[in-house]
Amino acid sequence: METLKSEYSHIKGWGIDNDPQDEPNYPMKNYTGDDHMRIRWKRPTLQKVDVELLLSTERPTPSAVFGSKNPPRGLSGMIRRYAFKYSENEFKHWLPLLLADRVDVVEGMIEDLIHLKFPRVVKERGWYALAKHAPGILARKIGVRLAVLAAIAGIGTYKLAKS
């Protein structure tokens, strides 16, 4: 240890937390002698449930505290309610949640428009930072989007002309 210590003297605190007793399976359980009692803990005071709370099927009751903001809403909320019929073990739980997140984005835009708040996409996407630090990347992003729009417009025009 001392030989090694001198070898690493340029590194402050080298080896100070080395514990030869530390073996895999850490953190060790903190056995208290009444381990069989561990599942019967005295629960904290329960937060009042005054919003719609979607509960994992893998637990019988809500946790004592939870976040109360952004309860399920609209179509995304319906999808989330469907997802929470299934356990965390199921893809049927997680994939609908990802879908709900995307639907929620559209609902958020509609909500903004209802409140006469127009999405400031350039600002919200942080493109000012791109313009300052990586104008080439920004140009590429804009170029790709314009190309996609042009392609969609082209296909639309072609189909219209054909019909």
Binding site: R43, P44, L53, L54, L55, S56, E58, R59, P62, S63, A64, V65, F66, F84, E88
Partner: peptide, 10 residues
Amino acid sequence: CHESNPQATA
């Protein structure tokens, strides 16, 4: 912690 997340147990 088991008392801080109602939506997921993992």
